[in-house]
Each structure stands twice: as structure tokens, then as C-alpha cells.
Amino acid sequence: MSKARARFYRHEAKLRRNICATRTATMKCPSIRNLSAAVALAIVNFVHPAAHAADALPTLHANPSRTSVSGLSSGAFMAVQYAVAYSSSVVGLGVIAGGPYNCAFVNIGGVVTCMSGEPSGSMSLAAAEGFASVGQIDPVAGLAKFKVYVFGGTKDRYVHPPVVAATRDFFQAAGVPPRHLAYVNKMPAGHAFIAPAFGNACGTNAAPYIDHCPENGKGKNYDQPKAILEQIYGPLNPPADTLSSIVQPFDQSAFAGDGTSMDSVGFVYIPRECSADASGCAVHVVFHGCRQGAQSVGSDVYASVGYNRWADTNRLIILYPQAVTSQPIPANPEGCWDWWGYTGPTFQVQSGVQLSAVKSMVDRLTAPK
């Protein structure tokens, strides 16, 4: 058995345990019989020794002009980098607890300022304009068309509110109009994705870095994947009660080799309709945070945050690329995405090893017929 396949088995073995462990008092722990067909199939496949080889990422011919991205923490910085570097093919993004483009290189104090200080959104825009002027990223004018969601929890101990505000300032300076820029900064959330039915209590700053928080005045939990995808794509169809497909592992080493601090296996959710005909489907890339890849939290992000249920009914393919811990070179002990240069000085432009790897994955999913 390959190491990649064995790792995937371990992730799926945690799936039911994680669901039960994070239920609130009003959420019952489901039996296998009562789980959705997709989750049940994932658990059954775990115990089957021939299941889930990490196959090649399929070529699907999805719409290349409707790609979007989102992420938490280092994944939020990465989402910003991807969107800025490839703005001509990106329509929008969701930024959860992350700072502006090239933040660590343009602000005195570097990483510390970009987590707990007051970085400058306008300086980040100037950096993007400089890279665009020499052809290292797409023209900055493309940012103005974006639909943007920016979120920061008031109880986030890792990325402080002024950092998130600088991300808002960056996109405002880039010309994104107010109606296309959602800035959510009043929720008492910790450093986490906000899932409607999974994770820690609101305000928690701990693994798996997924919280569930009540939505004020609505009598239900906040659904962040819905908020992000609706901000980018407009009104959505209701989410699926039962998924039409399952999350699939794929061979990420085909895109990212040694020195990238990326795992050998990535994950993708492809709704059944998109498997049959992806021409009307779009790709949304979800970047996990530090200590939040599958290596650290198993299936929690790719199975439980809640993107897949919205993807299933809205013709969206969800790509979950994976960073991994690495030492001593590159020095990435927390399994973060590179937003400060541990893979080299070109981490924030199209030639950066992580950005180019993920773009190659998106290109595979959106290849022309």
C-alpha cells in the first residue's frame, strides 16, 4: 500500500469520530445508517482495503473564466496571492483572517506586523502594480472586477482586526466597488472557518480551526461557505441534503515536487453533474490554514466545513490543495502556505512554486476540449 493511500485511509477513519466529537448539545451524533449517502460511503470505503488510490486529477473542461478562491489564515494570504497573480481568470475570493498582498515584504516588521500590527493596504497595491509592470503577475486593473468577501473574528488571537482591515483597504484601493466588497468584522469568532454544523464553540482558537457561530437574529448558525460563494457567484440554489458524490484524493505530486512543502495527495469534490458535463461548472479553490491540512486534521476541512453541499447544487468543483510540514528546507514546521518567502523570493508571483502548482491544477480542471 502506498504512503499516500494509507494517509487517506487514516483521514477517513477520523471522519465519524470528528463528527460526533464536535456535535453541540442540540446536534445528535448520527449512526452510519443515518449519515448522508456520501459520508456513509466515505466511511465504508475506509474499511475497504482497495479503495481510494490517489489517481490523477481529471481533465474536466470546466469554465476557465469563473474560477474563485478562498482560505483561512495562511490560506487566506494564499487566496489573495492567487487572485492577484492570476486576476484575469479569477472572478472573486473569500479571505478569512488574512492580510493583503505581499504583506510581509512591504511592511516594517514583516510577519509580525502582518499578524498583529497595522499593515498598509495601499503599500500592498503598490507592490502588485510593480510586479504587474514587469509581467510577473496579471494586470492589476483586473482586480476591480472581483467580488470579495473579507472576514475577521473579534476573538481571533492570531490575526488581529487591523490586519483584516488592511485587506479590505487593499481591495478598495484596487477599485472594487462597495457593493462587491463584503466586510464581516463583528462576529465573536476565533481563528477559524465558520461552519454551520461542525467544529468548536464560537470564539475558539484551537484545532481543527473550525468554529460554529450563531447568526445574530436568525436563530441558526452562520454558514460561511454560503456567504463566500453567494458573494462571488450571486444567489445560490439550496444546498444538497445528500451529496451526489464523494471527496476524491488525487496525486498532487504531479504538480508539486520536492522543495514546495506541498503534500503528495490533494483532494477534490466533483458533483455528479460536473463529472458528466463540466462545461457549465466553475472551480473554487479552498486553501486550508496552518496546522490545518489533511496531515494535521484529517478530513475536517475538505469534508466538514460545508463547501461541498453548496457546490453540489450550484455546479461548482471544489479543489482542496494541500500544504504539508517540512524541515529544514523549506522551513515550514506548521504546514502553512507560503506568504512570507520560505520557498523563495518569488512566492507571491506566477513563477512561485506553490502558486504555479495550484494554477496547474486549476488548468487541468478547466482545460479546453
Rank of each mutant, 00 (worst) to 15 (best):
P345L: 06
P328C: 00
G335A: 12
G335W: 01
S304Y: 13
S299L: 09
Q295D: 14
I329L: 14
E334I: 10
S356E: 00
Y307T: 03
P333L: 09
S304P: 02
Q348P: 03
Q292V: 00
P328Q: 08
S299G: 09
D300L: 06
G306T: 07
G298D: 08
S356P: 02
T313V: 04
S304G: 06
W310T: 02
Q327V: 10
D338G: 03
Y320A: 11
V324G: 04
Q292S: 15
A294D: 06
I329V: 14
Q348S: 15
N308A: 14
P321M: 11
D338K: 08
P333E: 05
Q348R: 15
S326I: 04
S299Y: 12
S296I: 03
Q327M: 15
T343A: 02
Y342E: 01
G344V: 01
V305E: 08
Y302F: 15
V305P: 09
A303H: 09
G306N: 11
P345V: 09
G298H: 04
W337N: 07
G306C: 06
W339G: 00
Q295V: 12
G335L: 11
V301K: 07
D312F: 05
T313C: 05
Q292N: 15
Q295Y: 13
R291A: 10
E334W: 08
I329H: 08
P328N: 11
G298Q: 00
W310Q: 08
P345R: 14
P345A: 10
I318M: 14
T346I: 00
S304T: 13
Q327R: 11
T343I: 01
S326C: 12
P330M: 05
A311K: 10
N308F: 09
R315N: 15
I318T: 15
P330C: 01
S299N: 10
Q354A: 07
Q354N: 07
Y307I: 01
R309M: 09
P333R: 12
P328L: 11
G344T: 02
P328E: 02
G306S: 12
S296K: 12
S356R: 06
R291K: 12
S351T: 15
L316E: 05
V297N: 07
P328H: 06
W310N: 03
Q350T: 04
T343R: 04
Y342H: 13
D312E: 05
A311S: 13
S296M: 08
A331Q: 15
G344S: 11
I318V: 15
I329D: 07
P330W: 02
D338S: 04
I318C: 10
S351C: 02
N332W: 03
W340E: 03
L316G: 03
P330L: 01
V297T: 13
G306K: 10
D300P: 05
N308D: 12
Q354D: 02
C336H: 06
N332C: 05
A294E: 06
S296G: 00
L319E: 09
Q322H: 04
R291H: 05
D312C: 08
G293D: 01
P330I: 02
V353Q: 00
D338R: 03
V349T: 15
A294R: 04
R291S: 13
V301S: 12
G293A: 07
S326A: 14
P328T: 02
T346Y: 05
Q292Y: 05
Q322V: 02
W310I: 06
R315V: 00
S299Q: 13
L355M: 09
